[in-house]
């Protein structure tokens, strides 16, 4: 049950460490089953490199089912590869043809320094959440879950934003390396839900300030992030962030 077999050329970014100079290297890989996932294909490559006495390619991955957001990779110039609504770990080799050359690069953004090969440091996204991406409610303070009704459709839109997996594909695919979709997904979710209302003004101001501080670019409403987002977070959330910011800027305190 191995399906068709592919012979591929892989052009992979290799970089020994954060301060080392990186470069592309070409590898030939024969007999890749079309049923393999993209990361399994890299596993096979790594096994081959190990046998040849070379160091395996480092890449981030964990759950391998599209939810943890750990996997990344720019595959032929597209974040998470050619499919929409798909993470690299969900991408399967049936998407490629025999004889293809596949270019694999790490996410590139000044705020995401390369640690090794295809592994980058995305802690900037954590720091943005630290600056305000939460509801300040200590454990034990909560009223009954049904105390505040939330209309089904509002909850649905909040959930659309909350679905963000924090992988950074929006930043990677944006021509400005902007993190607006990531920030907007959280701002939007928490501004839609009544629980997030008390802090909505300070939240958006603080998160945008942190985003700028981390060195992300500015949004030009190109919508490439939406196309690249594996969780299909829509740019309408960015509009909501802008609206929240505009409101916070003009009519709210702080």
């Amino acid at each position: 049950m191995s399906g068709d077999l592919l012979n591929l050329t892989l052009r992979i970014w290799r970089q020994a460490g954060p301060n080392a100079k990186g470069a592309f290297r070409d590898y030939q890989l024969q007999g890749v089953s079309t049923h393999m996932s993209f990361l399994e294909m890299l596993d096979v490559l790594n096994e081959k490199l190990l046998q040849a006495g070379e160091e395996p390619v480092a890449f981030d991955h964990d759950c391998r089912e599209g939810i943890c957001g750990m996997c990344s990779l720019m595959i032929n110039g597209q974040a998470h590869g050619p499919d929409k609504a798909t993470t690299t770990c969900q991408l399967h080799m049936r998407r490629f043809k025999n004889g293809d050359t596949i270019v694999i690069e790490p996410w590139r953004a000044s705020a995401f320094p390369v640690l090794r090969d295809l592994v980058v440091d995305r802690s900037a996204l954590d720091r943005i959440i630290q600056s305000g991406g939460f509801v300040s409610v200590n454990t034990g303070n909560a009223p009954d879950g049904n105390a505040i009704p939330i209309p089904g459709h509002v909850q649905e839109v909040a959930m659309d934003g909350a679905a963000c997996i924090g992988c950074g594909a929006c930043v990677a695919s944006c021509k400005n390396a902007s993190a607006m979709l990531f920030v907007a997904a959280k701002v939007s979710q928490l501004s839609l839900l009544p629980q997030g209302h008390p802090e909505r003004a300070s939240r958006v101001i603080d998160m945008v300030a942190q985003m700028d501080k981390e060195g992300f670019g500015s949004c030009t409403n190109t919508s490439e992030c939406e196309a690249a987002c594996p969780a299909e977070v829509s740019v309408t959330h960015i509009a909501r962030l802008n609206r929240e910011y505009f409101k916070a800027m003009l009519i709210t305190e702080k």
Partner: peptide, 10 residues
């Protein structure tokens, strides 16, 4: 209750 208060969109 706690999760709802945190903004978990159940």
């Amino acid at each position: 209750d706690q999760c709802v208060a945190q903004g978990v969109p159940f």
